[in-house]
Design a protein around this nucleic acid. Sequence first.
RNA 1: GGGCUCGUAGUCCAGCGGUUAAGACGUCGCUCUCACACAGCGAAGAUCGCCGGUUCGAAUCCGGCCGAGCCCA
Length: 776
Amino acid sequence: MERWTKEHEARILEQTRAGGFTVDWSRYRYTLDAASVRATREAFVRLYRAGLIYRGERMVNWDPRLRTAISDLEVLHSEEDAELVYVRYPWADGTPGGIEVATVRPETIFGDVAVAVHPDDERYRSLIGRTVRVPMTDRTAPVIGDPLVDPTFGAGALKVTPRHDPVDREIGLRHPELPTPVEIFDDRARLTGAWVPSDLHGLDRPTARARTIERLTQDGVLLRREPHRHSVGRSERSDEVVEPRLSTQWFVRMPPLAEPVVAAVRAGAIRIHPDRWNPTFFRWMEGLQDWCISRQVLWGHPIPVEHCRTCGHVEVDLAPAERCSQCGSRDLTPDPDVLDAWFTSWLWPFAILGWPEATADLDRFYPTQLLVTGRDIMFFWVARMMMAGYYFTGKPPFTDVYFTGTVRDERGRKMSKHLGNSPDPLDLIRERGADALRFSLVFPNPTDEDGPYGRTALDGGRNFLTKLWNVVRFAGPYVPTGDRAPPVPELTDAAALEHRWILARYRRTAEEVDAAISAFAPTRAASALHAFLWHDVADRYVELSKEALSGRLGEPAQRDARATLAFVLERSLRLLHPIVPHVTEELWHALPHPEGLLATAPWPSADEAPADPEAELAMEPVLEAIRLLRNVRAEEGIAADATPRGWIRPSNSEVLEVLETARGAIVRLAKLGALELLPADAAAPAGAGSRIAPFGECYLELPGRSAGPSAALVREREMLAALLAKTDGRLADAGFRARAPPEVVAEAEAKARELRERIRRIDEHMSGTASPGAAA
RNA sequence: GGGCUCGUAGUCCAGCGGUUAAGACGUCGCUCUCACACAGCGAAGAUCGCCGGUUCGAAUCCGGCCGAGCCCA
């Protein structure tokens, strides 16, 4: 047992280290170390003295393979196919006939003490009080009335086996006149005891069921059998069908512990994220059953109780008693059971800080802030920690809980040992790196939902990090060196829009990351950084500024580009660092940076970069023009190495001005031979491929042929026409004009105008009658 | 049996009263262009599960139905 523990401990620690978790290793703790033993014992004694722990005979979930009681939470219910067996219980006085009983568990007939019917059931009311003979036995049993019986199930009559079914137990308790039931199963759920014929002793449940059916058939009391699907409870650990069994166990009284927790969550003292789990949480908390904390297993904290063999007194104290406090006897025997492991775990948030001592750690770090854990242990652990927190310390153990979903395989199945579809994180780390693994867990699928995980996600993470690596590698030779973090660039060349634009985009990204983290939405933060670094920085900004970086545009332009690139990359690495610590740390050292580690560098404040909506807006026509010209290239099948001439006719002078400054970039990125910017009243170039955008028109020379009617243009016109019809429809609606807010109406009117204009321009092109000055 | 949650392109998922419904993966073209083919460029692909209601206006709010998942008994 020791060895097994050590091996698994080592493996978990290795996974934690390899995964790059930032952990205070000096506070490493184990649930069975001396301090945990002390805290566990203290908790038990306090609850016992407060009357919140009791020992009692209750119906518990018994795992016959592990031979221990388990808690309700450890039982997994699922629908399984079974057989409903109809059996006649003959009248004890020998009158022909009898009463028909349906059961899925004929092997428990030996434990019957009664047959119960619903007191209002017309079919059976007159039979209440008569006596039947229990099949296969010499015993008799009365027919009783009890409202717990479901008259619609089976034949409407229920066999009552109080030691082996919770409902039957309840009925038994309500009918004290019934004989005391005898147990018919041993701790392995094999038939045993005085009520079972000796030749059946020792049979397990499936065998017993088969033999019972045979015997009932021989006896002529088996009426019929029909297939029946019902819910079966299995032990989470052994997968064995749980046997309800009446036994003496230790329990914690839950309702008094739950009350302050429900109040705290309702009042917002503890917040659950995402908050859609609140209903589930409350529903469970408000219907709590007492917690069975004793286990009949080898490994665990012993129950800190001794029983006096002389007088039966129970000793419960912080230290084992020498003698019985009641009768003075020295003949004390320890309780044979151990505690449910969760009984130690639920103390964890304060036990690790030294509780029950009033330590400095406890004072400083408790309550803690955030618990991140899997939703599957919401009840086992999280809710119980809250209860223990309030009960033992009067405070919440944490102020926020973030529930992650369960990772599934790529086919959407739960990962399980049985299916063999759960990869070892160490293998994934060896294969693709710890950061690829980390990134793929937050992107693209939300961390708080059950999502598929596999090759695709992992490779996606690896690809993104490769991209990041390459961008920094590209930037390396250009960025200035230095021993401080790049400052916010002071741009000298005001006309170079791309720098202003990327800084504005950076600011938006940083704001989104901050907002996402505050909202406990790590996936949103990762998405924002992914989109920014890959598409804005790598695909657009780097391409746009290559010319300036090279120095071909002169020294001031180069300086602006270098400073901006350095700033954007350095800050982005800081924002990305919590998600992918290893790669960002490494790359950070390739950029200008202060002494020390990225891990300890301060979190960048989003507002150091200027918000610049004008730059963002102005950049749109540039990027759009490049896209449209490339689109014509691709659609018209222009050779990759061809450099056709291009024209843009902007619809107003501001756009013209912006495009003028970006002319070089457009030429390069659209691979043009030359780009001419046409005045609004110029004629459209003849025979060129064209695209109509809100900001103006783009033309591309089609070498060696004339442009046919463009399919893309036709599609575009259809789309715009449909949109215009929709918008016009809205505007024609008197209700819309009367009731919608004026700004919405104005927006719709502006949209209709713009659409009409664009359609007109498309029509001109398609009829080949584009005329100068018509756009005014 | 009860409850909760979720149904949006082939897949995963964002949006949660007024945008040409965002993105990622996959698919289809073109390209090994001096950071990156683990890539670049371009494109196609969604009547937002179904029916009804509220509203000038619904993917978004309400009700019902169907389907899936989870939790509890």
